[in-house]
Design a protein around this nucleic acid. Structure first.
Length: 487
RNA sequence: GGCGGCGUAGCCAAGUGGCCAAGGCAGUGGUCUGCAAAACCAUUAUUCAUCGGUUCGACUCCGAUCGCCGCCUCCA
């Protein structure tokens, strides 16, 4: 089996081929650091976190590069608003980004280049383009000659004429052609600037990725990723710059993930409908967010809602409950005959293969989650059949399955906590959130326990209803009564 | 207007032409339980927006229609 990945460039799923055997060179567009990250950024980070982990799980060496855009119009504007310097603002939000990413538990990329630390590389690339007649200087700015690149539009499936028909291209007297885009901008007074052959200025947005990916990977690399909104113009322009300069193919596979929407609309600051990662994590465990994000294929839109998050939380708890039940199993006896039907043990043993098949198909995490639930169902079924002194062989199979489940779910960053701890913490979080009085509950339960011993069912049920009205749900088990907070 | 994508049960969501259309949430019946809860078992789309076409056979391919969304300006 080979991994198939959807390639935006060809609009097809293609078998993964790497330039170097078993080595994937992956570049992902990171954030422009001028504000807190929202769930859309979380989706991007988590999608590529999963992809990197999965490729490594499948035996690839992955070199993962993700940049920071730390100089940009928005940064300059925001810094002025906040009466600080662009450098300070950008650094601050890079720090906030790390805070969020660490909370989400994402892997650090192997390299995290910043635009401001690669100005010479950008100047060199621009110089090469000018030397080839593919860029020109005008009034301290440098522009790319779009018409010098006949394949312009091949990624976003557009052509220059059609786009000119749209009237939204700003008129700029400096440009020779309205679609020409800026590689280097002359700085205005008070703006950050770097010396260049064209005078003091700063880089255009697109050039940084071309220059930095070339630094780490050379002229051609395997996978370039980002959000679907980057396809045009950002990635289209990167292709024009890089292929224009090198004459080589820039990227083999383009991977673009879908948006997070709220009430089916794209999150955007102008609509005021965006939620930051820390907003979400204040209310939900990071794994709940991950579970929610991976419940839909990465290229599809994903609609955020409270109820969807609740479903995700319920689903994740179901997985953890199962793991916790297996963890609680006794060692088992060699004298007890095994109960596990061959069909069932075969199904459990197939989990890994089924998971790989789903994930090899363009990282189908939604299908993979379905396989987790299938597995949980099988495990629970067997658990419910197990006698007090189960067969050692059955226990071994269940423990092995639980371990596999944790390993595979770990690729999505799920089931990474100790199950009992997770469930206990979750209950604690709910208690804290709802202001439940634990000693009062314990007292009522003790009273109910006494009532039950006396077979005073009326009083016993009265207490249960009383607790339920406070959102406390109880479970009578062999080892006593436990309780959880609903919701 | 141009380009791209989507429309699968009450909700969410897989499905790379052909065994009964995954899975989750919610619902219903049952087992268990003093009664419950959890768990388990069973059940919930003769049908995949609509209409045509290709094919022995289509949710899967092609065309049209309707509806929704995104990009075309900064954007994950």
């Amino acid at each position: 089996m080979t991994i198939h990945i959807h390639n935006t460039l060809t609009a097809k799923k293609e078998p993964l081929q790497t330039l170097e055997p078993n080595h994937v060179k992956l570049y992902v567009c990171g954030i422009t650091s001028y504000d807190y990250c929202h769930i859309g950024h979380a989706r991007s980070a988590l999608a590529f976190d999963m992809i990197v982990r999965y490729l490594r799980f499948r035996g690839y060496r992955v070199t993962f590069v993700r940049n920071f855009t730390d100089i940009d119009d928005k940064i300059i504007t925001r810094a002025q608003e906040q009466q600080t310097s662009p450098e300070e603002l950008a650094e601050r939000f890079i720090g906030e980004f790390y805070t969020d990413m660490d909370a989400l538990g994402t892997l650090r990329p192997d390299f995290e280049p910043k635009a401001t630390e690669h100005i010479p590389e950008m100047i060199e690339l621009i110089t090469q383009l000018i030397a080839q007649g593919k860029a020109y200087e005008a009034g301290g700015d440098v522009y790319y000659v779009v018409e010098s690149f006949p394949e312009y539009g091949k990624l976003s499936k557009r052509n220059i004429d059609e786009m000119q028909a749209g009237a939204r291209i700003s008129v700029n007297e400096q440009k020779r052609h309205p679609m020409d885009f800026v590689l280097w901008k002359a700085s205005k007074a008070g703006e950050p600037s770097w010396p260049s052959p064209w005078g003091p200025g700063r880089p255009g947005w697109h050039i940084e990725c071309s220059a930095m990916s070339r630094k780490f990977f050379g002229d051609t690399f395997d996978i370039h990723g980002g959000g679907q909104d980057l396809i045009f113009p950002h990635h289209e322009n990167e292709i024009a710059q890089s292929e224009g300069a090198s004459g080589c193919p820039y990227v083999h596979t383009w991977v673009h993930h879908g948006f997070v929407t709220i009430r089916d609309e794209k999150m955007s600051k102008s609509l005021g409908n965006f939620l930051t990662i820390r907003d979400i994590l204040a209310h939900y465990h990071p794994e709940v967010l991950r579970f929610f994000i991976f419940s839909t294929h990465y290229r599809s839109p994903l609609d955020f809602s409270e109820s969807a998050m609740q479903d995700a939380a319920t689903g994740l708890e179901r997985l953890y409950e199962c793991i916790a039940a297996v963890d609680a199993l006794p060692g088992g006896s060699a004298d007890t005959p095994t109960l596990l039907p061959a069909e069932e043990s075969g199904r459990l043993a197939a989990v890994r293969d089924r998971f790989v098949e789903a994930m090899d198909n363009d990282f189908n995490t939604a299908q993979a989650q379905g396989i987790f639930f299938d597995t949980v169902k099988s495990v629970n079924r067997l658990l419910s059949l197990l006698p007090a002194e189960p067969a050692r062989a059955d226990v071994a199979i269940l423990r092995g399955t639980a371990a596999t489940l944790k390993e595979l779910a770990g690729i999505m960053g799920l089931l990474r906590e100790d199950a009992r701890t997770f469930l206990a913490n979750r209950r604690t979080a709910k208690i804290t959130g709802s202001g439940v009085d634990v000693p009062a509950i314990e007292a009522l339960l003790a009273e109910r326990d006494q009532a039950r011993r006396e077979k005073n069912w009326q009083r016993s049920d009265q207490i249960r209803d009383e607790l339920l009205s406070r959102n406390i749900e109880i479970q009578d088990g062999a080892g006593g009564t436990t309780w959880t907070v609903k919701g």
